[in-house]
Design a protein around this nucleic acid. Structure first.
Lengths: 206, 206
DNA sequence: GGATGTGAATGTCTTCACAGCT
DNA sequence: AGCTGTGAAGACATTCACATCC
């Protein structure tokens, strides 16, 4: 069960989202072909992806929407809540804080940090914006699992080093800069500039 | 020169960013090994990526930082300005509008749309927030190349259909939903939920 | 009959290793 | 000597196709 491709995991997320939609639509059973169609992939890919984790379907029938949904939630580690901190209370931080989809999947933002005195002390839905000086102590005190980096590029690596030293092992980075973390720490990057440049590349060659 | 992997293009963006940094540091020449180290990949990968587009280095020496930088900008289609529209003037839209890195690479937001009467008519840095009803006419009138979707998931596909019918061929989607576009239209997705679930997956299996 | 689960085949991407320039 | 550029090898991911089971 080791060694699963990142692309497989990303697709599982997509499947899960499609299953949630099917559930809302009242559909109770789905074939790999139907799920693939909604997820933008192929039936064989769906079956292969799932086969890494077990066997969830019934031959001749397909998959139970609710069962598969629940299995995927377990596989993706969504069977618990995750304690999240947000570093950077600027526009991007505010947008992320608001992004309710996180909460729905069990990601709870338990702490917010910023350096701007005008923001420190504000209450966001009951969560106080704290100064960066309290970073390590709050991360440990609140037992934070995952930190979201939403600070300027120049400050990001410094924040990451402190976050890692405070024992956090999952980081989602929105700063447009390549960060380094020690082995054992999981780092994901969301870089809009890379995506935009992917678009301009594709559009330019025609 | 056809058929370049998406992953290659994404890395080119990263190289370009590293080269810009090297330029600021006053470095004039860089080896594939040094660039790879900064970009988080291998020397062979750097050379192979570049080899799809030509030969830019000097054997025994490395690459001229400024030359390679300029070549990459051309390859990525950054040798011109791109006219961008933003649909959705909520928190995410506001954060994106503010994201100055876009502008620096030649992506200019020329139009903003929303449905909220409280937002329509606002001026964002001189760009007026317009009602969605004007979508097609403004996209054509302003000769928009790329549209950023920052509306709720439920509204996204409808917006995309209208945007495509108005002749736009590049879309960057921030709504957490799988969109479909006809062939010939380039679609990139930024999905934070997928990234967070990738983190929880990695953290859960230890 | 119908759809899954999976080894085998195919396709794609990355790494190796070295000839060839500077 | 040093480092690039690139075929060839290897690793990895996707697709095929079919035996298997409901």
């Amino acid at each position: 069960m080791r060694k699963v491709a990142e692309s497989t995991v990303a697709r599982l997320s997509v499947y899960l989202r499609q299953l949630a939609e099917l559930e809302r639509e009242g559909v109770s059973t789905v074939s790999s072909a139907a799920l693939a169609c909604r997820a933008g992939t192929t039936a064989a890919q769906v079956r292969k992806d799932l086969s890494f984790f077990g066997t969830f379907g019934k031959r001749g029938l397909g998959y139970s929407v609710s069962e598969l949904s629940s299995e995927l939630r377990t596989i993706l580690g969504l069977g618990r809540t995750w304690r999240v901190a947000l570093v950077g209370a600027g526009k991007i931080g505010a947008a992320l804080y608001d992004y309710q989809d996180f909460r729905r999947q069990g990601f709870y933002i338990r702490a917010v940090f910023d350096n701007d005195p005008a923001k420190i002390g504000q209450r966001w839905n009951g969560v106080e914006v704290r100064p960066a000086s309290e970073l390590e102590s709050v991360l440990r005190g609140e037992a934070i699992d995952i930190v979201i980096i939403a600070v300027p590029a120049s400050a990001a690596q410094g924040v990451v080093d402190r976050v890692v030293s405070a024992g956090v092992r999952g980081i989602l980075n929105f700063a447009p800069v390549r960060l380094t973390v020690p082995p054992g720490v999981e780092l994901k990057n969301v870089n809009m500039a890379v995506e935009m440049e992917g678009l301009s590349f594709a559009l330019a060659r025609r």
